[in-house]
């Protein structure tokens, strides 16, 4: 197994005009892990994920995916779930599946179709007609049905009910590639912390710390949620 980081940044800065979203960020994420990207609103979580997905480019410094700067080759290794839907809402579920199949060589159509039929979702349903929770589930199923090296999930459980959250978390645990890494950004820490290996805390575009979740529990005698509340106390 390759021990080099799947995702790393070197003194990476991202500015939007005068605003600095990420400020000389240095971090490294290993393989085969589920990592939580945690921070208050506006700390730069979504920006970091978009940079890793190759949608944005750094203003300064470097970001490397599997040792390479983002390009067509790295995009093929990255499965990205954006915070907001980018699909055409008039498409049918079945058309969306076909689109993924056309687009991504590592997409497992059978796996996706099986999960969607487990949920009793009609393949002929138009995306627009689905509830918010169902739409989120469908998107997650598609993203997790790829055999990617890096899964980037931006707020995958925001805005869905607790039962749908459990379904989404179990789908993540049950489907990511064994040597793949899952990076999940969220502010719903209590809900996701059980499935994490590590957390990355960022604030104002800077890395605060990166630690194993069981180390936090063991050394600080607190949950990751409590630790977050303490570190980011207003």
């Amino acid at each position: 197994m390759n021990n080099a980081a799947i995702l790393s940044t070197v003194d990476m800065t991202k500015r939007y005009g005068k605003l600095t979203a990420l400020d000389h960020l240095n971090l490294s994420v290993g393989r085969g892990k589920i990592v939580g990207l945690l921070g208050p609103n506006g700390s730069g979580k979504t920006t970091l994920i978009k940079l890793a997905a190759g949608i944005l480019t750094p203003s300064d410094g470097q970001i490397l995916i599997d040792g390479q700067e983002p390009c067509a080759e790295t995009k093929a290794k990255v499965s990205y779930l954006p915070e907001r839907t980018y699909f055409d809402e008039h498409m049918k579920v079945s058309q969306l599946i076909t689109k993924f199949e056309d687009f991504y060589e590592d997409f497992d159509r059978e796996k996706a179709a099986a999960m969607i039929s487990d949920l009793d979702i009609d393949l002929d349903a138009i995306l627009k007609s689905l509830s918010k929770g169902t739409k989120e589930k469908v998107q997650l199923i598609l993203v997790m049905s790829r055999k990617a090296k890096l899964y980037l999930l931006d707020e995958p459980i925001g805005g869905v009910d607790p039962a749908a959250r459990d379904y989404i978390l179990n789908t993540i645990i049950g489907n990511y590639q064994e040597d793949g890494t899952v990076l999940i950004s969220t502010h719903l820490i209590a809900d996701v912390e059980k499935i994490l290996d590590e957390v990355i805390f960022i604030r104002d575009g800077q890395l605060m710390f990166q630690e194993s979740v069981d180390d936090i529990r063991e050394e600080r005698n607190q949950s990751v949620d409590e630790c977050f509340r303490e570190v980011f106390k207003c």
Binding site: K33, L169, N170, I173, G174, K194, I195, D197, D214
Partner: peptide, 17 residues
């Protein structure tokens, strides 16, 4: 490991440990 992890809703690496 993966089945146990899914059953317990925890990370497979943690179950492995």
């Amino acid at each position: 490991v993966r089945d146990l992890a899914t059953e317990a809703s925890v990370n497979p690496n943690t179950m492995q440990r």
